[in-house]
Amino acid sequence: MVAFKGVWTQPFWRSVSGEFIAMLIFVLLGLGSTISWGVGDSPQPADLLRISLCFGLSIVTMVHCFGHISGAHLNPAVTIAFVCTRRITLAKSLFYIIAQCLGAISGAGLLYIITPFNLIGNLGVTMVNERLSLGHGLLVEILITFQLVFCISASCDPKYKDKYPPIAIGISVIIGHLFAINYTGASMNPARSLGPAVILWNWKSHWIYWVGPIIGAVCAATVYDYIYCPDNDLKQHLKEAITKATQKTKGKYIEVDDCRSQADAEDLILKSGTVHVIDIDQAESKKGKDSASEILSTV
């Protein structure tokens, strides 16, 4: 039960429901831009600019609306990356990912219901271009997700105040689509690909849209947080702990005496920026309960 500490609280479930609603709206709007409304035998060609702008501006809107509620991850790959950089616990991330996937499926299902059957087409299912190998498709998804999550990490870094994360993140989504729609459909988001795949039951090369974004997201968040812009307090604390652990006294290793409490350790976690912060245990701590704060960042 310790692993699920902070899960059974009203603020956390408000955050989970926010992820569900935001993902539903994002997928509904984004996939809707891929629908061709051509007449008869003259279908409209895919408008790459319209699709890119719709996905990017939808992200801007959802991050602005839900950033202070749930952190607006809106992407299982981002949530997994935040687990690796200690911005969210593993237990809480499971509920976030489930909410994101259910929201994406619901959004794709709603679009399927309201769209005339003869216009549905492939409902925005992401597929690797036939001219590419699966390996090339996987590499493209890794690269575009890397640039997205690196942008998220940089724009939400509290050390740099003069930023507006929703705009930066939305632009990152737009350029990812402009570049990669013709390659892989530009997913960058496993839940976005899962939604239409479930509704049309089309699983062709679907694994690429989980493996690629997750690898890209984890690499980007790890590189930013631990190489380019590490937290100095956390770095110093880890250095001291390693030094104590390797010291010898009378031929024996001494036990590390960590004077920091669990709450102090969690305070070293990189906190998010402008659209950012939700302390889901704050209400309980004010009541005198023993609870640790949890910071969720935006997507």
Rank of each mutant, 00 (worst) to 15 (best):
F4A: 13
G6L: 08
G6D: 09
W8Q: 12
V16F: 03
S17C: 11
E19W: 08
M23I: 13
L24D: 00
L24N: 01
V27N: 08
L29M: 07
L31T: 10
L31Y: 01
L31C: 11
G32D: 05
S36Y: 06
D41E: 15
L48Q: 07
L49T: 13
I51Y: 00
S52Q: 02
S58P: 04
H64P: 01
C65M: 15
H68G: 13
G71I: 10
L74N: 02
N75M: 04
V78R: 09
I80W: 05
I80K: 03
R87M: 12
A91C: 06
A91I: 06
K92V: 03
K92T: 07
L94I: 14
F95C: 14
F95H: 12
I97D: 00
L102Q: 01
L102M: 12
G103N: 00
A104K: 04
S106K: 00
P116D: 10
L119V: 07
N122G: 08
L123P: 02
T126S: 11
V128L: 07
V128S: 02
E130P: 00
E130Q: 13
R131V: 01
E141N: 04
L143C: 12
F146C: 03
F150D: 03
C151M: 11
I152E: 07
A154G: 14
D157Q: 09
P158T: 03
P165W: 07
P166G: 12
I167G: 05
G170I: 01
I171Y: 02
I171P: 09
I174F: 04
I175A: 06
I175Y: 15
G176C: 13
L178M: 15
L178Y: 10
I181R: 05
Y183S: 13
N189F: 02
A191N: 05
A191E: 03
R192P: 07
S193E: 04
S193C: 07
L194P: 01
G195Q: 02
G195Y: 00
G195T: 00
A197H: 00
N202Q: 01
Y209M: 06
P213C: 08
I214D: 09
A217G: 14
C219Y: 10
D231H: 08
N232K: 07
Q236A: 02
E240Y: 05
I242K: 15
T246Q: 14
Q247G: 10
Y253E: 04
E255W: 02
D264Q: 14
D264K: 12
E266L: 12
E266R: 14
E266H: 07
I269Y: 12
K271V: 08
T274H: 11
V275H: 10
A283S: 06
A283R: 08
S285L: 10
K286P: 00
K289Q: 13
D290M: 12
D290I: 11
S291D: 11
S291E: 14
A292D: 08
I295R: 12
S297G: 15
